[in-house]
């Protein structure tokens, strides 16, 4: 099999990605795989292939893969035309300009954002650190639930079922508290 990107070297690497709920399999050579870094695979088919390079070159200097990156013309990714309800920003425009227009943009593009943030923040996609006082409490509870769920999983794996059950009760307790902040809580 020949590399789908350069169509020259033999493909040695298979990349599987989830895209809009569909599984996509790609075959690349070693060289292209390194250059692509699976980032602009998610760009729209009619996206200006230079836009993302412009964006990132202005932040990072010329990216290594811009030297011989080949526009991907055959990708079957769907064009994402979602625009931000608060400001009208589209994802494509964000990639061109490298900046958001309003806080709601984050919510609008939350599916695509992790791959951008990963590149900018050394692989990180999630905030750790200070939280504004007003939302502190519910945030802490959500974090607590996450941690407990992890504990529960490992308890189950290690067949400590009694522990798992008691952790589950703790999770339910916190979930109740979380919900009582808003509406009346429903029994599951």
């Amino acid at each position: 099999m020949i590399c789908e990107n350069c169509k020259q070297r033999p493909a040695t690497i298979t990349v599987t990605q989830m895209k809009n709920g569909k599984k996509l399999t790609r075959h690349y050579c070693d060289v292209c795989n390194k250059q692509l870094d699976h980032f602009h695979l998610n760009l729209d088919s009619d996206e200006d292939p230079n836009a993302v390079q412009k964006l990132f070159s202005s932040w990072f200097g010329t990216p290594s893969w811009s030297v011989q990156a080949v526009p991907i013309s055959n990708t079957q990714t769907k064009v994402q035309n979602d625009s931000c309800p608060q400001c009208g920003m589209t994802y494509r425009k964000f990639l061109e300009e490298g900046k958001f227009n309003c806080p709601t943009c984050y919510e609008t593009f939350k599916e695509q954002l992790p791959q951008v943030l990963k590149r900018l923040h050394n692989g990180a996609i999630e905030h750790i650190g200070k939280v504004p006082g007003s939302i502190n409490e519910s945030y802490q509870m959500k974090r607590q639930i996450e941690a407990l769920r992890q504990d529960m999983k490992s308890a189950v794996e290690e067949e400590r079922f009694e522990d798992a059950a008691s952790i589950r009760d703790q999770v339910r307790e916190i979930e109740k508290k979380l919900q009582s902040g808003g509406e009346e809580s429903d029994e599951h």
């Binding site: 932040w59 490298g98 900046k99 958001f100 227009n101 806080p103 984050y106 939350k110 954002l113 951008v116 943030l117 900018l120 923040h121 990180a124 996609i125 999630e126 905030h127 750790i128 650190g129 939302i135 945030y139 959500k142």
Partner: peptide, 14 residues
């Protein structure tokens, strides 16, 4: 909750 403080430029997010 997951992105932290929302900023105009994604280089400041978090």
């Amino acid at each position: 909750d997951s992105f932290g403080y929302l900023t105009s430029c994604p280089t400041n997010t978090g």
